[in-house]
Design a protein around this nucleic acid. Structure first.
Lengths: 253, 253
DNA sequence: GTAAACTATGACGCAGCGTCAAAGTCAATA
DNA sequence: TATTGACTTTGACGCTGCGTCATAGTTTAC
């Protein structure tokens, strides 16, 4: 049997915390001495360990009580729900990180950031910017129709969709990276490139070979993009561009 | 000039939060209409963005006020510094999520998770389990030495290391997935397999072909592993196994 | 037997809002 | 023009997970 201070010292929680856990019924000491002293058993300690574990997972004390006290059913349900919550948190964090990156880049590159973009992820910006630049260059080739189409499409995207996009981007980059030692014409790399193009087509606009080539150029010409891609690995942007060009050449034959 | 709801919706914070920030002087609206309506300017929005970034980094509102209001506050520098923090936080979140997932799996698979494992990533579990099973089967071939070696090595791994491992695992799975349409003998797939083996060798133990084959089997024989892998895509585990077998066959020739 | 170290129970405080409630405002419609 | 419905305001209380006194009883060591 251990008294409060002993428990506190060995587990790292404060005495006050133990009081609190007792009060709310989360961790009742096995015994109470005649003088009212809390006496904890080994089992109590084990339970405390459990509690601490779940606390690490960001559960509330109330939820922890549910999880530990109730049979498996509750536990699983709770965990699953909690996981959703954590994933949502993560997504938000990712968005913010991307925003921060954007902000830094915009300061460095002297770019102007519009308000509505300040709170969005990087990917939408990427697509929009490219679309804009391209449509300026290619003027009459596609009119405003294309641009407007894209805007309409992307406008309806939820944060879930953006999450998916982020995921796909990540996947593509990693696959490209994996082939960097084998040259841009490596079949694995080429498949990744093809998938990327299809993804753009599915989610934004018909990514013709011309446009695609332009996108590849953008990756090295625009420092903001280069930076973002090279975060994965030095030189990835350049390699990506090469791969895209090779892909386009092949397709045209 | 934007009214509260507009600001709330575009930034994701609640109206109440805006009220609160106003009250404590953290974010005062540029103007107040004759009717007492809060009207936010673009600069207000920028400031809000800053606030949110620092909040994500777990600064208190009070600290945030200090930081932002200090005249020598260098946006760019601060953003860069704190991006690191954000990334660290994301990593931690990811670890927590994995732990939660593990817990769910362990319940579903009927496995009991020991406390000591609860803080570790799935991968270590994977290796350990496999190592155990294998060393039981292959008894005298490797003695306890191998097992102990692994334990010693992995014991020293920091959470950063585990993060790296998780990243690599993720990468491999995605690369394998990308080749599922082309069969297990696809060169891209085979390279991913080879990378995986090398990774295991580098981080845990000498992954001989025998052991590697066994690991592949485990992916489909052990429902816990299967589940974890098939989360990426239905049938990935089976495909992975095939790919590993093919790889081993090739290596033996 | 006395001091030092430990224990108890209350009670208040804090952050960062969520969540009513009551009341005023604005724009569109009937 | 009057009314509706969407928005806005200012309180004020609640909540979590304890920290931090204050006051008072208990053990232990010497």
């Amino acid at each position: 049997m251990y008294k409060v201070k002993e428990v506190a010292e060995t587990t790292g929680v404060s005495v006050r915390t133990l009081h609190h856990y007792d009060r709310i019924g989360l961790l009742k000491p096995e015994e109470v001495s005649s003088a009212g002293y809390r006496l904890y058993s080994d089992e109590n300690l084990e339970r405390l360990q459990q509690i601490l574990v779940f606390k690490e997972m960001d559960f509330s004390l109330h939820e922890i009580k549910d999880i530990i006290d109730r049979p498996e059913f509750n536990r699983k349900e709770n965990l699953k729900k909690h996981k959703e919550l954590l994933l949502a948190k993560k997504k938000r964090l990712e968005e913010i990180i991307r925003t921060v990156e954007m902000t830094i880049d915009s300061i460095e590159g002297g770019y102007q950031m519009e308000n509505k973009d300040m709170f969005k992820g990087f990917d939408m910006k990427e697509i929009e910017e490219h679309q804009k630049k391209y449509s300026e260059e290619a003027k009459g080739r596609y009119g405003k129709e294309t641009v407007e189409k894209v805007e309409k499409r992307t406008a309806g995207y939820s944060s879930e969709d953006w999450g998916e996009i982020q995921n796909k981007t990540d996947e593509i980059y990693k696959r490209i990276m994996a082939g960097m030692d084998y040259g841009p014409e490596d079949p694995g790399v080429q498949r990744a490139v093809a998938d990327w193009r299809r993804f753009i087509t599915d989610h934004y606009y018909d990514c013709t070979l011309d446009i695609f080539r332009g996108l590849g150029d953008l990756y090295v010409d625009d420092p903001r993009f280069t930076k973002n891609i090279d975060k994965y690995q030095q030189g990835l942007a350049a390699f990506f561009k090469e791969a895209i060009h090779y892909y386009c050449d092949q397709q045209e034959k």
